[in-house]
Amino acid sequence: MNIKDFEKTIQQLFGEKLLEEEDEYGFTYTADKEIHKIGYATNLSVETVELAIAQGIDLMVTHHDAWDFIYGLREACAAKLAAHNISHFWIHAPLDFVDFGTCTALMKILEVDEINAYSTYSEADGELPGIAEFAAPVEFEQLAGRMRSALSEPVRAWKNNDRPVKRIGVLTGAGHSSALIREAAERGCDTYITGEATLYTIQYAQFAGINLLIGSHTFTEIFGVASLAEKIAEIHPDVEITELEESHFELNH
């Protein structure tokens, strides 16, 4: 597979509509060579680039670009990528809102029985969480334990009602907005799951009586990146995929 083949595969997997916003995906650096090994991670960072170098990666695929407000990071990463002739592609919003993406992948990891709605975005409504149900209700602590095991990290948990968990709302990563929690509650969810929390997130969930489970931004989203990498490998079976395993650096709250 070469870069052109990879671009066609992204078009095939996401479709025209999800790729309309061209500032939500792209290449940081493209190397002129065949792609035999893809390394995937949630974040583009100096650390993940160094993992790619050590593992002989030809193409990095991440959910996040280097954020503009982490000053100088993109330039540092681009320089390392160029020095070692490694391509890098990132895809943000389209991966959040595709039917195999970040929210769906986490819901499946949590062993839901039915996905009622995928996470979506529109100009009229903004972001909306994914909604899923368990056929048989599970105890809140059981679900929290399931999430801790899947993410391999502590998960902060607030039990704000006395019911077992039946219906969950999920928006991975920075889904801390109280408006998103209100949307989940209004759609009958007893539990809301995301990857970041502020004072307002916690207070509103308590006020609204909806349980809250908070993992890290990185590890609530890694399953969606893995899902994308697996789909690329299905289309190009000669390409090897491997996770660039990030540390749990967000845990020092």
Rank of each mutant, 00 (worst) to 15 (best):
S122F: 13
Y121Q: 13
D68E: 10
T48A: 02
M147T: 03
D65W: 04
E139T: 11
P137G: 14
K108M: 03
K37V: 07
E111S: 14
V112M: 05
E22Y: 06
P137R: 12
G101I: 12
A41H: 01
L19N: 12
G145F: 04
Y71V: 12
A124M: 14
I115L: 08
C103I: 05
F134E: 07
I115N: 02
Q142W: 00
E34W: 01
Q12A: 12
G130P: 08
M1S: 13
A52T: 06
K4I: 11
E47A: 12
T104Q: 05
N116P: 00
V49E: 05
L19Q: 11
E141S: 11
E111I: 01
E20Y: 15
G126S: 15
V138M: 13
S87I: 03
K33V: 08
G56V: 11
A78V: 14
H84T: 01
I35T: 03
R148Y: 06
H88F: 06
A135V: 05
C77Q: 09
Q55F: 08
N2C: 01
Q55M: 13
F89T: 07
K17W: 06
V61A: 02
E50S: 08
W67T: 01
S122Y: 13
M147L: 11
K4M: 02
A52Q: 05
E127I: 15
V138E: 11
F100K: 12
T30N: 03
A93L: 15
C103T: 10
I131E: 07
L110T: 07
F89V: 09
Y25D: 08
A105Y: 03
F140T: 06
A41N: 02
T102P: 05
I109H: 07
L18D: 10
H64D: 09
I86R: 03
G56T: 13
L143N: 00
V138A: 10
D68A: 06
M147H: 06
M147K: 06
T104K: 07
